[in-house]
Design a protein around this nucleic acid. Structure first.
Length: 501
RNA sequence: GGUCCGUUCGUCUAGGGGUUAGGACACGUCCCUUUCACGGAUGAAACACGGGUUCGAUUCCCGUACGGACUACCA
């Protein structure tokens, strides 16, 4: 099956997985599932300096939480092990060597300091330094130095890097699935480092070699990679390989203003940009996670999927299964999408309501007996965004009021309503059945007999019992509080309400 | 600075040479409700600008503006 779809998500373990990365993983996963292909998880840990312990597990856990499960790679295994690039060091080395032998790449001995100095020099002259066809002849590399000297340097174990010999002239073109044809002149590409002096490959080499070896059919990645895509094409050409299809995804933008969504925006806006909570092992700083903030995985997936893609229909709610069904690369947008917390919350509400009261009660109100818990869920489900709101609502509901809504008091508290509340205090104990419907009937009848309109006193009654001018169904509230509690609260209110002159 | 990419309501977006430019979030109003929320209805709200091409351009082309990404021995 040489034409089968094989896609990969290839994050580097440098910290918590950014939500934009999660979306990239999602799209890769969706395409694979849609087309019956394989979704591979590969870890790009070729930067030893930026390695962060725990980051790889974090990636695994995040994907698992959202149901984006790889078919092959880290944590699963597969025909192309290992899937951690640091463990594939020798492979890249041999491929780099091939490029040296075929004259497509060369050794460069310039130190970082020398290059920094060179950049500073060019900058002072108002131009930008590029390691390319015109400058490389004057630099310390195997193309410019006499052969003997190069051999000497290598024999002395002088640190070196391997650079790609980018042709001076030519045009690179490739057809991006999302952006169509992209053209770039080789003159604007510099001789990128392929192998670093520590023996590790750079992203560019490792990614091309692995994608080829692992027979990746579609490279779906963020737009930030678009500028280096021509370089990758050049690499495929240097190896004589057929490049995969490229699809460069639009960026996730910050909610206010412009620019890439960053952790800073999250902290400022009080919303998460990471799937799971993350504690920085160095500083101990905690970054919020969607999960811990109360976002459901289905909501997170649905919200994320719609940032840059849409089905072309008016349906908004999509399960992972629905997404697989509807997904196509062609319907991905070109322009960046701003992250809208409000929309994310709306999705969460929608999915929250889809969960059964029994399940929500058991999960989020575990300290309550099942029947009671479910009753509370029914009472509050329409007014919460996050499941943990349930608990705070219940706590609030159960708390005896210590203050009363001043506005309602000012407009509704008078001798007539006072009489009504006192009457209620008399009526309530006579309720033989303490169920919402029966209580309502009793109250209705007795107030009517006394010539008092329900509408005139009910809000005040609510304030008397809860302290608040608004809230869930009052009769069901009464039932849940219980008769004794209601009477106690009513007495307290009558006692604490301001004296009428 | 250079290279590349982008631009439809405030936001996510549909659409695409002739449409009352559609939906969703948020917002306003109304209905439901003793209240709030939910729900329902409804309203306000957009084709960045300038040139072409065309009978006709928001749609195609070219510029301009604006925005963004990239520009490391990071990914």
């Amino acid at each position: 099956m040489p034409n089968s779809v094989r896609v990969r998500f290839a994050p580097s373990p440098t910290g918590p997985l950014h939500i934009g990365g999660v979306r990239t993983a999602l799209y890769n996963f969706l395409l694979a599932r849609k087309l019956g292909g394989t979704f591979i998880l590969r870890i790009e840990d070729t930067d030893q300096a930026r390695f962060v312990p725990g980051a790889e597990d974090y990636i695994l856990e995040s994907l698992a939480w959202l149901g984006i499960s790889p078919d092959e790679g880290i944590g699963i295994g597969g025909p192309h092990e290992p899937y951690r690039q640091s463990e594939r060091k020798e492979i890249y080395k041999s491929y780099a060597q091939k490029l040296i032998e075929s004259g497509k790449a060369y050794y460069a001995f310039d130190t970082s300091e020398e290059l920094d100095a060179m950049r500073a020099l060019f900058e002072s002259k108002g131009s930008a330094f590029q390691y390319n066809a015109v400058t490389r002849v004057k630099l310390r590399n195997s193309l410019a130095l006499p052969k003997k000297e190069v051999e000497q340097l290598l024999a002395n174990n002088t640190p070196y890097v391997i650079r790609l010999k980018v042709p001076a002239k030519g045009e690179i073109r490739f057809q991006d699935v999302i952006r169509d044809w992209v053209h770039v002149h080789t003159s604007s590409i510099d001789d990128k480092v392929l192998m670093k002096s520590d023996g590790m490959p750079t992203y560019h080499l490792a990614n091309v070699v692995d994608d080829h070896i692992m027979q990746i059919s579609h490279v779906i990645r963020g737009e930030e990679w678009l500028p280096s895509a021509p370089l990758h094409i050049l690499l495929y050409q240097a190896f004589g390989w057929t490049p995969p299809q490229f699809a460069h995804l639009p960026l996730l933008l910050k909610p206010e203003g412009n620019g890439k969504l960053s952790k800073r925006d999250a902290d400022l806006g009080g919303f998460p940009v990471f799937p799971l909570e993350w504690k920085d092992p160095q500083t101990g700083a905690i970054s919020k996670g969607f999960k811990q903030e109360g976002y459901l995985p289905e909501a997170t997936v649905n919200f994320l999927a719609f940032l840059g893609w849409n089905p072309g229909t008016e349906q908004e709610l999509f399960s992972l299964k629905d997404l697989i069904e509807a997904f196509s690369l062609e319907r991905i947008n070109k322009a960046g999408a701003k992250f809208d917390v409000k929309k994310a919350q709306w999705f969460n509400q929608q999915y929250l309501k889809q969960h059964g009261a029994k399940e929500l009660a058991a999960t989020y109100l575990p300290s309550l007996e099942a029947e009671k818990g479910e009753a509370y869920v029914h009472l509050f489900l329409d007014r919460i965004t996050f499941p943990q709101d349930l608990l705070s609502m219940v706590e609030d509901f159960l708390a005896i009021p210590d203050s009363y809504d001043a506005d309602v008091l000012a407009s509704k508290w008078n001798s007539e309503t006072k009489r009504a509340l006192e009457l209620l205090l008399e009526i309530l104990p006579s309720c033989t059945s303490w169920h919402a419907d029966d209580i309502k009937q009793t109250i209705q009848q007795r107030l009517e007999t006394a010539g008092i309109k329900m509408g005139k006193v009910m809000q005040l009654f609510r304030v008397a019992l809860s302290g608040k001018g608004a809230g869930p169904d009052l009769m069901i509230s009464l039932e849940l509080w219980g008769k004794d509690q209601v009477l106690a609260r009513l007495r307290q209110a009558l006692d604490k309400f301001p004296t009428l002159s």
